Amino acid sequence: MVTQLLEQLTTLFKQMDRALIAYSGGVDSTLVAKIAYDILGDRALAVTAVSPSLLPEELEDAKIQAATIGITHELIQTHEMDNPNYTSNPVNRCYFCKSELHDTLKPLAMQRGYPYIIDGVNADDLQDYRPGIQAAKERGVRSPLAETGITKAQVRQLSQYLGLPWWDKPAQPCLSSRFPYGEEITITKLQRVGRAEIYLRKLGYQGVRVRSQEDTARIELAPELILEFVLNTDLTQLVTQFQEYGFIYVTLDLEGYRSGKLNRLVAPESQK
C-alpha cells in the first residue's frame, strides 16, 4: 500500500518540470518537499512564510528538515496581520491568511519560472472546515496529497517508510488558531500563546495547545496525559509563569485536545 501511494505521488511530480512548495515544516508539506526534491532535484524550491503566527521553534525545525532533505529553502515575509479581515478573526480567517500567502508566493514563482505551486493539504483536510483551501484553489495551487487521496495517517506512514525522522511530529497549525472566532488577534496575544506552549513543551508535553480567550489560557493535552499532568506538574509555578506571559487565569480542558475544536462553534451554513 505504501509503495503504491509513493508511486502515485512520484508519477504526479514527474509530470511537473519545476515546482515551488509552500513549506511550513509540518509533516505534510515536508513529505511533499521530500518527494519533490527526489524527483525534481534543483528544480524544486521550498519557501516558508514567516509571520508572527509562526513559532520561532517551528521555523528552526523547517530549516533543519529542509537541509536534511537537501532541497533549496527560502524564507518570505507575509503580512496578514496588516489585514483587518484577518485580525478581526472571522470564521473564514484562514481564507485571508492563505490569500496573503499565495498572493505573495505566486509573483515569486512566476519571476523564478516555477509553473506549479504545491501545498501540503491532505485528504483529511478536505473533510474539515478549511476556508484556506478555497483561497489556494482560486490561485491555482496544487495539492498532491489530496489529489491522490492520501490521509494524515498515510502521510506519516510514507514519511516513516522514507526514513524521515520527524514522521510522528505533532501537528502545529498557526498560532491564530488558538483564539475563538470574533476575538481580535494581536501580535502580543500571539506571542504570549507561543511562549506558553513552548513552556509546556519544555516540560515534556508535545502536541499541546494553549487556547486563549481574552485573559484566560485553557491548556489542552492528550486525554491520557491529563492525570499525569495534574499529579506531576508544579501548578503554582505554571500559573505564575503564564501570568508573567500576560494571562490572568489558567485552566485545564478536561476533555483533552481535539483538532478543530473551535469549529464546533461555527454554524453549518457558515462553513459553506
Rank of each mutant, 00 (worst) to 15 (best):
P180Y: 04
R130V: 13
L200T: 07
G132T: 12
L158R: 01
I198G: 06
V121N: 04
I187V: 15
D119R: 13
L203T: 11
G113Q: 02
Q111I: 03
G194P: 10
A153D: 12
Y129G: 08
L108T: 04
T186Y: 07
P170V: 11
E138F: 13
K202L: 12
S177Y: 00
Y114R: 10
L126Y: 00
M110V: 13
A153V: 13
F179R: 06
L158C: 03
V193M: 09
S176D: 02
Y199Q: 14
C174I: 09
I133C: 04
K202F: 05
P131M: 10
T104L: 02
Q191N: 13
I185H: 05
L200G: 05
L145A: 11
S159D: 05
D168S: 15
I117M: 12
G113E: 08
D119E: 15
V155E: 03
L200A: 03
F179I: 01
G163M: 10
K202V: 06
E184I: 11
V141L: 06
G149P: 03
S159L: 05
A109H: 10
P173I: 02
T104M: 01
K169A: 05
Y205N: 14
E184Y: 03
T148M: 07
A136C: 12
V193A: 11
G204F: 03
E184S: 14
V141E: 14
G113T: 14
A171W: 00
P107G: 12
R156T: 08
L164E: 10
A109P: 12
G120W: 00
R201F: 01
Y181G: 06
G113D: 04
P107M: 11
R112T: 01
L162R: 01
G140E: 03
P115K: 04
E100C: 12
H102C: 12
T148P: 00
P144I: 03
